[in-house]
Design a protein around this nucleic acid. Structure first.
Length: 287
DNA sequence: CGCCAGGGCACCG
DNA sequence: CGGTGCCATGGC
């Protein structure tokens, strides 16, 4: 991978295992707009970035090399060898081989913990289009220039204000998160140095944060690639493909994933999630 | 109309 | 402890 400036835009060449559509559409983030095939506007890290991919080259519009190094190289997890990861998790697993081949350009983003936390609180018992809509509404109402609102910008927002954004019963959870963070009762900046299980328990101090939401934050924003968030899709696809259709308990699936994929379970989870939603299982089962 | 969605809580026995 | 209803909303 190398890059050069082209009239104020940055062109990155030689990408491997990278597909901007799969990366953004795989359900790990919610602040993006599709402009065209393989062309997206991504809102993250305090700015709106337009990115367009053609083959193994990615153009970041209006972006300097310094900004790329400071933000996007890490955000898109560009220094990791996904070829090796895919080979390890699928070498003796034909099911995972299929999932990996289905969307081989997925990468796990390194998102901001604060935004990731609030986003996945909103995600609970919800569907992706509606999650995106609620987060967009919250950003437009309380953020600056459509950016995700800061903690300070949410500090005076009431539960009723949040309810008006159509987030339903999750309003109390967002309110609790904002005020536990403001009070320093939960400190996201300390989580990065904690062992995974300890960080998970810390996150679960917030109302509306259970294992699944906490695991998404650990996986998508705190670099804990060994966690395996289990939502209804993942539970379904693992039960279907690895247990002959027999519905497994959450604990059984967690044990299975830890034993099978270990430190790489988070990657495996994301390939499976995308495979389940977009692939043959995506169109729901017939009665 | 009923079911479902990147779940978790409160309340039960 | 493990199981069960409930929570708002909108798409299908």
């Amino acid at each position: 991978m190398n890059y050069y400036d082209n009239n104020g835009s940055l062109v990155i060449k030689g990408l491997k295992d990278f597909n901007i559509e799969e990366i953004l559409e795989c359900g790990q983030c919610f602040r993006f707009i599709k402009l065209d095939d393989l062309k997206y506007s991504v809102t993250a890290l305090g700015r709106v970035l337009t990115a367009e991919q053609k083959g193994d080259s990615l153009t970041l519009y209006d972006c300097t090399a310094d900004e790329f190094e400071a933000k996007w190289r890490h955000y898109f997890d560009m220094d990791r060898d996904y070829g090796a990861i895919k080979e390890k998790i699928s070498c003796d697993d034909e099911i995972m081989r299929s999932a990996v081949n289905y969307a081989g350009g997925i990468r796990l983003l390194n998102q901001e913990p604060y935004e990731c936390l609030l986003s996945f609180i909103i995600s609970q018992n919800n569907n992706i289009p509606r999650i995106k809509g609620i987060i967009a509404a919250m950003s437009n109402k309380y953020g600056t220039d459509g950016n995700f609102p800061t903690l300070e910008q949410l500090s005076d927002v009431t539960e009723d204000d949040l309810f008006a954004l159509k987030m339903g019963f999750r309003n109390k959870y967002i309110y609790d998160a904002v005020h536990k963070l403001l009070a320093g009762e939960v400190r996201l900046d300390t989580l990065i140095d904690m062992p995974c299980d300890e960080a998970r328990e810390e996150l679960k101090k917030i109302k509306g944060v259970g294992n699944k939401v906490a695991d998404c934050v650990l996986l998508f924003s705190l670099g804990h690639r060994e966690v395996f968030p289990i939502d209804v899709w993942v539970r379904r696809v693992v039960s279907e493909l690895y247990f002959d259709g027999e519905e497994q308990s959450l604990n059984a699936i967690a044990d299975f994933a830890r034993n099978k994929w270990g430190e790489l379970a988070g990657y495996a989870q994301q390939y499976l999630f995308y495979y389940a939603r977009s692939g043959s299982m995506g169109k729901q089962t017939n009665p």
